[in-house]
Design a protein around this nucleic acid. Structure first.
Lengths: 182, 182
DNA sequence: AAACCTATACCGAACGTTCGGTATACTCAA
DNA sequence: TTGAGTATACCGAACGTTCGGTATAGGTTT
C-alpha cells in the first residue's frame, strides 16, 4: 500500500491526541501495520508522519481555496462554498483542528513555520474574496483573520462543550458576517 | 512550601505542552522539586497536579466574573473589565489556554466535564451582563458563546502566527461588538 | 521453463531511553 | 525526638527506534 493510504488515519490521530499524545503503538493499531513496517514507509519516524499529514492538509486547503476563488456567484455564495468545505473537513465541528493541536507540546517549534504559512494563506484567501468584492484591503485582511478566528474558536468551544452546535451556528452565519458593510 | 506555590509553574507547563507533553522531569526542573517531593505534595500524581491547577483556574475565573458583575458602570465598561482581566490571564495573547490544551490527548475524557462547566459559566457570565442591559436572553446566550469563541480563536491564531496582535485586536473590539444592536 | 536476483512490504524481537511512580534513608526544624 | 520534606536510588512499563529476517512479486538470465 502507498504511504498516502495511511494519511487519513494519521490525521485523525494527530488532530485528536496532538503530537505528544500519539504513540507508535496507537499508530500501529490504527493502521494495522507493525512498528517496523511504519518505519519502512516513514523512515523519518513520527516527525515524517506529521510532515506527510501536513503536506496533505496543505493540498486540501489549496483545493478549498481554489474552489472558493473559482466559484461563480456573489460574494456570499463564494464564502458559503468555503465554509461548506471547511465544515466538511472538520466533520461539522466534531473533530479538532490539526493546526491547533500542533501548536501544543514538543512539536511546537518543529512545525510552527508550516502552521504559520497555512494559516496565513487561509486568511489571505478570505481577504482576496472580500477585496474582489470591493472591500478595503486592510479591512478585508482583518475580516480574513476574523473568519479564521471564528472557526478556530468555534471548534474549541464545540470540543469543550462536547456539542457541535456552536460550530455549526458560526459556520452558517460566517459568510454574511464577513460581508457586513460591503 | 504550600502546594499552591507551584500552581503558576504547573499552569504554565500544562497550558503550553498539554497533558501528554508534560513529563515529571519537566515538572521537576520547573518547580525545582525532586520526584519524591512532587509525590509528597501531589500523591495523586500528574492527574492531581492538573486537578489543582484546574481548581485554581476555576477560582480565578470566578474572581473575574465576580469583578465583572460587581463593576459599576455601563455595559461596555463591565465587559471591558472582563476583557482586561482575561487578557492579563493570557499574558496579552502570548500564552495558550489551558482548557483548549486539556481537550487534546489522553486527558480529554478525564477533564472534559470540568472544562465544560468552566466554559459554560464563562459564557453565562457574559450573557448575564448583556441580559442585565436589557438584551433578549437567547441573543445574550449566543453573544456569550461568541465572546468565548472570539477569545479562544484569537488565542489559537496568535499562537499559530507567533504574533499576539490578533488577540489584542479582538480583545479591544469585543466589548462593543457584543453590545451591538442593544 | 527453470533458476536466479532484486525490490517492496511486512513482521517479531530487541535496543537504549524515558516514562510515571515508589521505597528507603537522610536532613533539619519544632 | 518526632515528623514533615527532600535526595537518591530504583522499579516495571512504555516510549521511539532499529535489527535481522521472511513472503511475495516482477524482471533477468540460462
Amino acid at each position: 500500500m502507498s504511504k498516502q493510504t495511511y494519511v487519513p488515519s494519521l490525521l485523525d490521530l494527530f488532530r485528536q491526541f496532538g503530537y505528544d499524545g500519539v504513540t507508535l503503538s496507537k499508530i500501529s493499531q490504527v493502521t494495522g501495520l507493525g512498528k517496523a513496517s511504519l518505519y519502512h514507509h516513514f523512515p523519518g519516524g513520527k516527525d515524517q508522519m506529521v510532515e506527510t499529514v501536513l503536506i496533505a492538509l496543505e493540498q486540501g486547503l489549496e483545493q478549498i481555496i481554489s474552489d472558493t476563488l473559482q466559484c461563480e456567484g456573489d460574494t456570499i455564495a463564494r464564502l458559503q462554498m468555503m465554509c461548506d468545505l471547511i465544515s466538511k473537513a472538520y466533520s461539522g465541528g466534531q473533530k479538532p483542528c490539526l493546526l491547533a493541536a500542533l501548536m501544543l507540546g514538543s512539536a511546537k517549534d518543529v512545525f510552527q513555520g508550516r502552521v504559520q504559512t497555512l494559516l496565513q494563506s487561509w486568511i489571505d484567501a478570505i481577504a482576496t474574496v472580500l477585496t474582489e468584492a470591493g472591500m478595503n484591503e486592510e479591512l478585508a485582511r482583518q475580516r480574513g483573520e476574523n473568519g479564521v478566528i471564528a472557526i478556530q474558536g468555534a471548534l474549541i468551544l464545540s470540543q469543550g462543550l462536547g456539542n457541535p452546535a456552536p460550530f455549526q451556528r458560526v459556520i452558517e452565519r460566517l459568510p454574511t458576517e464577513l460581508c457586513q458593510e460591503l
